[in-house]
């Protein structure tokens, strides 16, 4: 029994710590949240990718983002997002307003966001053609 003592203490501390930090994270959000590109009619034009209405935080299925031809996901800094009345994370419409700037990816006429030229973006991942 003595040899289980430290293990039991470790289990208690781990469980208590997770309970504490998960309740804490409700009031202190993560530094960024992912938004996923929902291509309207399969379009990946500059205007469509730069349109924030085409980026959502709660897609039905989370896409696998790899490659560098088309827009897929962006991590938006929490200063630029908020929860709407339904509890869905959306872009802020006042105060810190995110701005997505797009450029042509590795394929012609297909666009991807540029983190450095955009406002409020922490990172991004694209998808193949």
């Amino acid at each position: 029994m003595k040899r289980y003592l430290f293990g039991i203490i470790a289990v208690i501390i781990a469980t208590a710590s997770v309970a504490f930090t998960s309740s804490h994270s409700v009031t202190k959000p993560l530094t960024s949240h992912n938004f996923y590109y929902v291509a309207p009619s399969g379009l990946y034009t500059e205007l469509a990718v730069e349109n924030k209405a085409n980026w959502i935080s709660n897609p039905g299925t989370i896409p696998t983002c790899s490659g560098s031809a088309k827009a897929c996901t962006i991590a938006v800094n929490d200063n630029y997002t908020e929860l709407n009345g339904s509890g869905v994370r959306v872009f802020k419409t006042s105060g810190n307003i995110a701005n997505i700037v797009a450029e042509e990816g590795t394929s012609q006429d297909l666009f991807v966001p540029i983190v450095l030229s955009s406002t409020g973006l922490d990172s991004k991942a694209d998808r193949p053609q």
Partner: peptide, 25 residues
């Protein structure tokens, strides 16, 4: 190490959607 492993595992499972989205990126 048990404490580290259990804490890491429970944190990931409690924030599963966020963890999966992070791995996707």
């Amino acid at each position: 190490i048990l404490l580290l492993m259990l804490y890491a595992a429970l944190s990931k499972l409690l924030q599963y959607q966020q963890f999966r989205a992070t791995l996707s990126a």
